[in-house]
């Protein structure tokens, strides 16, 4: 991890002014600069063009750039706000802001809803939920019978699909997630509370000082 000068930063593809990003997010300028060090490392891990490609995102998440994972794809697509197949620095910071401990729960609930609304229909449908459970089982060491999967999905729909129309809408998801806060556990990254404290090496290399 090398030192990054401000001249280098301005010339780098995908870079965005930390002052603007800090104004739009919960992060301070110093925290945005610290996040840039992490971003730079991930975005130069394979293709070295200053943008995060899907293989680089997978490599950072799994230490394996070829590991296919439905949820990694979903998160990448949600971070890729411009939908151009790469994550630039602004997208990285704005997306991570959702995971900041101080970000309102309502924003986390909406992000999780979009994550699970696989086909972007505005609903989490039964088939989507079953697909995600099967993907989780396939991608982990958990083994469950088809009957057990059906039972879990049915039981979850009984609890969450209050109007019983076979799909979970945003309001139903909001009520369900509010009653089951454990569902949002992954939506908060405590490290982000003060990333310059949690990662002092970022301070040294980014020049953050306050």
């Amino acid at each position: 991890m090398g030192c990054v000068s401000s001249k280098q930063l301005k010339r780098t593809l995908g870079y965005e002014d930390p002052n603007i990003l800090a104004k739009e997010t919960t992060f301070t300028v110093n925290e945005v600069e610290a996040l840039y060090v992490l971003y730079r490392k991930i975005s130069h891990s394979i293709i070295k063009d200053g943008l995060i490609h899907k293989e680089e995102f997978q490599l950072a998440l799994f230490r394996n750039m070829n590991k296919k994972n439905l949820f990694a794809d979903r998160i990448f697509d949600l971070f890729d706000l411009k939908r151009n197949g790469v994550i630039d620095f602004g997208e990285f910071v704005r997306s991570l802001n959702i995971f900041h401990p101080d970000t309102p729960t309502a924003e986390k609930i909406t992000f999780a809803f979009r994550l699970y609304d696989l086909r972007g229909t505005g609903y989490i449908e039964r088939e989507e939920l079953k697909e995600m459970v099967l993907a989780l089982l396939n991608e982990s060491d958990l083994l469950l019978s088809d009957e057990a999967v059906e039972q879990i999905v049915d039981q979850t729909f009984k609890q969450a699909d209050v109007n019983n129309d076979g799909k979970i809408d945003h309001d139903e998801w909001k009520a369900f997630a509010s009653k089951n806060p454990a569902l949002l556990k992954n939506m908060t990254l405590p490290y982000l509370k003060d990333i310059t404290m949690a990662f002092p090496s970022f301070v040294l290399v980014s020049g953050a000082s306050d």
């Binding site: 992490l38 490392k41 991930i42 891990s45 490599l59 950072a60 998440l61 799994f62 994972n69 439905l70 949820f71 990694a72 998160i75 991570l96 995971f99 699970y116 939920l129 995600m132 459970v133 993907a135 989780l136 991608e139 982990s140 958990l142 469950l144 057990a148 039972q151 879990i152 999905v153 039981q155 979850t156 609890q159 969450a160 369900f176 089951n180 454990a182 569902l183 556990k185 992954n186 990254l189 490290y191 949690a198 990662f199």
Partner: peptide, 26 residues
Amino acid sequence: DQPTSMNAFELISLNQALNLDNLFEA
């Protein structure tokens, strides 16, 4: 918890990809 005692979303949240802490250890 046993998987069968969890609701489907709890189960899904066990996925490694949904733990973005891993990004910080990149």
